[in-house]
């Protein structure tokens, strides 16, 4: 039963992705052409509220449901991995029109060709694992 709440949070996430049209290839294309505020409004409002939320969690030292502290892990300091990795991600995001969340929501929506994209994403993840030690980080 401890996993039920995560499934329910996932259901909420899936519905938001679908009803907010975030799973639409067209919305991603439109965003990268700067022709609509829609996606910027979504990411922007989520981040503004997220910043407030993280500050409140940190200042009130809010505990999670098990009573443990909610902690945030600072990311490793680097430029190259974020810039190069991010750019490669962006190329794929704009081509497939889906990032790792929407890929799965779209499968549930009935777009089974996304299973091929997910297969590609797993292959890409595996390749990174193989090449990790040889890449600049």
């Amino acid at each position: 039963m401890k996993y039920l709440k995560f499934i329910l949070a996932g259901v909420l996430f899936g519905i938001i992705m679908a009803k907010g049209e975030i799973i639409s290839w067209y919305r991603i294309y439109e965003m990268f052409r700067f022709e609509s505020f829609h996606m910027y409004g979504i990411i922007g409002s989520a981040v503004v509220l997220g910043i407030l939320m993280v500050q409140i969690i940190k200042r009130t030292q809010l505990k999670d449901i098990q009573g443990s502290s909610i902690t945030f892990n600072p990311k490793d300091k680097s430029i190259i991995r974020y810039l190069v990795g991010g750019t490669i991600f962006g190329l794929g995001w704009a081509l497939a029109g889906a990032c790792p969340g929407p890929m799965f929501v779209l499968v549930g929506y009935g777009y089974l060709s996304l299973l091929i994209v997910i297969g590609g994403a797993l292959l890409g993840t595996f390749l990174y694992g193989l090449l990790k030690s040889r890449l600049p980080h």
């Binding site: 490669i88 794929g92 497939a96 790792p100 297969g119 797993l122 292959l123 890409g124 993840t125 990174y128």
Partner: peptide, 11 residues
């Protein structure tokens, strides 16, 4: 497209 998303997000 998927491969670049998977590789790029892990990198």
């Amino acid at each position: 497209g998927g491969l670049m998303v998977g590789f790029g997000s892990r990198y």
